[in-house]
Design a protein around this nucleic acid. Structure first.
Lengths: 347, 347
DNA sequence: ACGTTGTTTGTTAGCGCTAACAATTGAGAG
DNA sequence: CTCTCAATTGTTAGCGCTAACAAACAACGT
């Protein structure tokens, strides 16, 4: 008891010269360092008395295991790499939060790598970065089909969970059922009596974009309606605005299902400028339900996705894979309608 | 040359049993492992011939340095922890991207920890997480003054860079000049002839919120105008909507400077419903210039901040601190006005 | 020729931890 | 009172790397 080390929970790290090691704890508890190792790793064969003595010593010294040393011998870094593009978007950002939460709860670290651009080289670069770090697994938040394809071409020796994939490829996946969401949106419009239902889609090379369009098409087919009113945007409010200007002139549809809330915002703006009233003249449905959607002009009917839940599910799946690398599969989160003022029966 | 290992740039990791080590490279190049270490660490005293031989061997074997082993001996993880709250918001998310970009370019890994709630215990928890991981430094993306205070109370032995702090505390900081941004916004309104300029502020316990309010106050004082029209919101569109309803009844101001774009959206919505025309009856200025701001009804005049640049500056500062821990200070990014249709001279 | 530099390379130890094995102890059966 | 077995604890080796030192070698002036 040469020196008294603080173990106040608010004192995260003392300014001592050297951090205590297993050996220091062992000495203090009067056991071997291996016994201390057993205690911190919850090995069963440690007597209760010893365990308590060791735990006391750990608390007194404020001992924290050295991750690098453990990684070196176990070949496990307890780090999950999150490969993300479009992290500034509402969806991916919240998914990341879900992943982080679940990971930290499970004792894992979360490392991120943002994709600078879409393309195989950029993906390979990010993956190399993760391999250098020795991540135990990779969660791919990659909405582009191309990115996913590039990832599948790489020969990886860690498990990969893809967000937004149905898990039919090489990797496990967790996804919000985009097709279902689109069908809900279109069903809502049909229920209100709409027969000419257009679609402002997201880019079709995005997995979610293609899925939503497919759902729109299926719902229309089920109802015996035509699926000829389709325009492709780029997710941005600006593209929605441009498309809205055209649609305002054409006036072919009484309702429009828009691929995301941002494009819907642009559409509403264009309609407003052109004197097309929403919902009296045209009904508009968005997708995502970002927090602002309820304050658009008019408040937007949209499809809500629980991105955080998606992230948590992802991490759950990753943990399962890390325990038993044989297992794989997919988990699906259901979206739901949020009806606001931008939809109404046609005139 | 028993086995031929691929070193195709697309093959990130072979499925060999064991990854090659320094020793393997050394053997192949006919040198000692230490010489290989010198090559990969760019030590000067290696002859050109040897260096080339070693580099060839590295490429042939696809050797990648084991981070855990290096960390164990150097006590450097080459990892930066980003402590973030409100990561789902436009600003912090983009700042994170800037940090990630600069970090990866500098050969650093980026680990994240999201704050589950505001409060000292949550901060201590996240910091402990980072210390367990052995991060070399922490970038704090913490907009609450309280969070920052909690962080300052901890005794940390790694450098900390705070985003949004002016660097006058214990830590270095990188910030967008919020006060200047607010002054620009108010100056723009004054220039248009407004004399009664209200402010819908963000929460005053947020650093940025308080700064913007202060800037509004100063600009008014400089012009000899009253600063009595102040209401505090919570950054959300919903709070902006509620406040907008009240302001629409009171009609005390001819112009409103709103603390962020989202609250401005809510305000516009409330004004629209109440028949208050923007900008004819009231001018509105936002803050942030998120991508959608140009498509509000009407398009929003606002103050643009370059969040990614902020993130990059942060990381630059961190790198400087890591090289020379004595250095500290602050770096400031200037915001700029983006004038759109929501502002006009008073009637 | 000689020592005296400086440059390049090799050897050794050890970072802090866990896995594998070895040793010790105690309890119960014979 | 020994023997066996299981439970508990200790000992040893080594994960892959870098720092520190040692050795070898060349170049140079005297």
């Amino acid at each position: 008891m040469r020196r008294m080390l603080a173990h106040n929970s608010f004192m995260v790290n003392s300014s001592e010269r050297r951090l205590p090691r297993l050996e220091d704890v062992a000495e203090r508890a009067g056991v071997s360092h291996q016994t201390v190792s057993r205690v911190i790793n919850n090995h069963p064969n440690v007597s209760k008395a010893t365990r308590e003595r060791v735990e006391a010593a750990i608390a007194e010294l404020g001992y924290r295991r050295n991750t690098a040393a453990r990684s070196l011998v176990t070949r496990r870094s307890h780090t999950i790499g999150v490969l993300a593009s479009e992290l500034s978007q509402y969806g991916p950002a919240n998914t990341l939060l879900g992943v982080e939460q679940a990971a930290r709860n499970a004792g894992y670290f979360v490392s991120i790598a943002a994709l600078r651009e879409v393309g195989a080289e950029s993906v390979a670069d990010a993956v190399r970065h993760f391999m250098d770090q020795g991540v135990d697994g990779i969660v791919a938040l990659v909405p582009h089909a191309e990115t996913l394809a590039a990832l599948e071409k790489l020969s990886l020796d860690v498990p990969v969970v893809v967000v937004g994939s149905s898990g039919e490829g090489r990797f496990s996946g967790a996804m919000v059922d985009q097709k279902l969401g689109a069908r809900l949106a279109v069903a809502h419009l049909i229920e209100q009596g709409h027969r000419r239902i257009g679609h402002v889609s997201g880019p079709q090379d995005w997995i979610d974009g293609a899925q939503r369009t497919e759902g729109w098409r299926e719902a229309l087919a089920d109802a015996g309606l035509a699926d000829d009113l389709l325009v492709e945007g780029d997710w941005s409010a600006g593209s929605g605005y441009g498309i809205g200007q055209k649609l305002a002139v054409e006036r072919a549809a009484t309702a429009v299902f828009v691929g995301n809330d941002q494009m819907a915002l642009g559409l509403l703006r264009a309609f407003g400028e052109a004197g097309v009233r929403v919902p009296q003249d045209v009904s508009v449905v968005g997708f995502d339900d970002q927090p602002e959607a309820g304050y658009f002009t008019p408040p937007l009917t949209t499809v809500r996705q629980d991105f955080e839940e998606l992230g948590r599910r992802c991490m759950d799946m990753m943990l399962a894979l890390l325990e038993d690398s044989a297992r794989a599969g997919a988990t699906v989160v259901d979206p739901r309608m949020v009806v606001r003022a931008s939809t109404a029966p046609p005139a």
